[in-house]
Simulated scan of single mutants.
Amino acid sequence: MAAERVEGEAGERMNTDAPARNGTERAPAATGAEAPGPGADAGPDQQVAAAVAAAEAAGPQQGETVRVDSWIWSVRLIKTRSAGAAACKGGHVRVNGERVKPAHSVRVGDEVRLVHEGRERIVVVKRLIRKRVGAPVAVQCYVDNSPPPPPREAVAPAGIRDRGAGRPTKRDRRDMERLRGFGGEPGTGGRTPRP
């Protein structure tokens, strides 16, 4: 009894007659000529829905969990998984109010607090995924309860010169030092006056 083998999308051979790991029957792999891909003639909403479906298919099965460092990387709260693990080890990640290790399991409904780059992110897990996805899909995997980011300064910081303005003169340097709080009183030539 020879089992039929078919190549999957990743180029690996898989047995289509053998049951899958979770006990369900595996369907034969589809060939590329049968149906167009998810982005063939679809609008942006349909593409996002297809990407969400693909992310859920690659995610854990019923009852399984995902590591917290992997999840915060997958939903793009942090740039790399190793940075997520380092944040957990440093005590910057809390799940339901408790500091957690990188291997802590996350479940749907958990509140994840992450302090990263001087900003606190508070999210509630809505979907579990293991693979990194695009930003439109990532925002559908959590509910963001974070405080708004601080506003950017409307004016340029003191001491920044326009590009191409050339080297500052002695007077310009004194003015910049005075704005930064390093220089003395104006008119003293940069020296601090004697008492």
Rank of each mutant, 00 (worst) to 15 (best):
V68W: 14
G8I: 09
S82P: 01
M1P: 11
A165I: 04
P60M: 03
G134A: 05
P195H: 03
G32Q: 12
V143H: 10
R191P: 00
V133W: 05
R5Y: 13
L128D: 05
V155G: 04
K126M: 04
R178W: 09
V106Q: 11
E56D: 04
M1Q: 13
V95P: 10
V66D: 08
G23Y: 04
V123T: 07
G164E: 09
V137H: 07
M1A: 12
G23A: 07
R121N: 01
D162M: 05
K89R: 12
Q140F: 12
G184P: 01
V115M: 13
T169Q: 02
R171F: 02
A156H: 10
G59Q: 01
V124N: 02
E34N: 04
E117N: 01
P148L: 01
V100N: 02
V112K: 01
V48M: 12
R107A: 08
D172Y: 00
V155P: 00
E185Q: 03
F182A: 02
V139E: 12
K79R: 09
A50N: 09
E98P: 01
R26F: 15
V95F: 03
A135V: 13
P28Q: 10
A33Q: 06
G91M: 04
A18P: 15
V125G: 05
P148R: 07
V123I: 12
A18H: 15
H92M: 08
N22D: 15
G23V: 06
R171Y: 03
H104Q: 14
V115K: 02
P149L: 07
A42Y: 05
G184F: 02
P102D: 13
A86H: 09
R76I: 06
R21L: 12
S70K: 15
G166E: 11
D175A: 12
R173F: 05
A138P: 11
R194P: 09
G59W: 08
P38V: 10
A138E: 14
V108R: 09
R99K: 10
G181D: 00
R13S: 07
R152E: 14
R13G: 02
T65C: 03
A154L: 12
V66S: 13
T169F: 00
P148Q: 12
C141I: 11
E153I: 08
A10V: 10
Q61M: 09
V124Y: 01
E7V: 09
V112H: 06
A58Y: 00
G63C: 14
E56F: 01
R119M: 06
A27T: 13
D144G: 08
A86L: 08
P186I: 08
R130H: 00
R191Y: 00
A33M: 05
G164P: 04
G97C: 01
R132H: 10
V6C: 03
D144T: 07
P157W: 11
A57Q: 03
A55V: 07
I129M: 05
P136E: 15
T169M: 00
Y142H: 10
D41S: 02
L77R: 10
Q46R: 09
V66I: 13
H116G: 02
G84K: 05
G189V: 01
A3I: 06
P149W: 06
Q62G: 04
A156F: 08
K79S: 03
A154H: 04
R67V: 14
E7M: 07
V125F: 06
E34C: 02
M176Y: 03
